[in-house]
Computed example of a mutant assay.
Amino acid sequence: MLELSGRFITRWVGMEMALSDGVLGEGPVQWEDESIPYLQLVSIDIQLDDDTSYRLLAQLDDGSGHYGLYLIARDKIEEPSACEVGSIFRTRDLNELPVGMASIAIEQADGPNAVLRIEIRIESQSILCWAAEVYEENDGTFRIAERDESILLQIDGVRPNHKFQRTPTGAAEH
């Protein structure tokens, strides 16, 4: 994770996962809920100003050698793609995330090699990434399971709003 510290992030692309596929899988797909102050992602591709790319992923402790949040180098980032009707996955530009010089802080670890939460600071904004996942209960409510294989993301303590757009300086605004 720390390899992003002091590097200039120019683009973010994420594979978002819906919170629910709707009643009995019959839709409509639910991407957000007021009880969950996070954006839920399967992966986040990060492009740097020198065209270096990384993918941020999360993994359960399954003995594979990866546990928690981790980065892998990529040749290029994933390009956004149209969401198939009824799919709970969509790949999109994360324009609501700031771009600029990043500093990284490990907020929560589980042993020497398992990073569970990181904070990415870009100028005055704080991006929190957490190795956790949202599960839908039988009654339609949601709960968050820590130490899971999705990435829950917040900006400045709130769920990012994909309706925000970046200004020319890189800050997000309505």
Rank of each mutant, 00 (worst) to 15 (best):
E34D: 13
I46C: 05
D51Y: 12
I77N: 04
I44Q: 03
L69Y: 04
L39H: 02
E84V: 05
S64I: 11
I77M: 09
E32K: 11
R55K: 13
D61Y: 13
Y70M: 08
L48G: 08
F89S: 02
D93K: 00
G65T: 10
F89R: 00
I88R: 04
P80Q: 10
P80W: 04
Y54A: 06
S35V: 04
I88A: 03
A58E: 04
S43P: 02
P37K: 11
E78K: 03
H66K: 12
T91A: 02
F89L: 04
I36K: 06
Q30D: 12
T52P: 00
D51C: 15
L48K: 06
L57G: 02
R74L: 15
D75N: 13
T91W: 01
Q47A: 15
S87L: 05
L71S: 10
P37T: 10
I88W: 01
L57Q: 03
R92M: 01
N95A: 10
D50V: 15
Q47S: 13
P37D: 11
D45V: 03
R55P: 02
L60R: 09
Q40R: 07
L94P: 02
I46H: 01
S53P: 03
I44G: 00
D50L: 13
G65R: 13
L94K: 00
H66N: 15
H66Q: 12
I77T: 09
L60D: 15
E79G: 06
G65D: 11
G63W: 14
D33L: 08
D45N: 10
S64G: 10
R55I: 10
D61R: 15
R92T: 01
R92P: 00
Y38D: 00
R90C: 02
A58V: 06
L41Y: 00
D61N: 10
D75I: 12
V85G: 05
R92G: 02
Q47F: 03
D61F: 08
R90E: 03
V85Q: 07
V85I: 09
G86N: 09
Q30F: 05
I88Y: 00
Q40I: 09
K76N: 15
K76S: 14
R90N: 02
P37L: 07
Y54K: 09
D61E: 12
R92N: 01
L69D: 05
V42L: 11
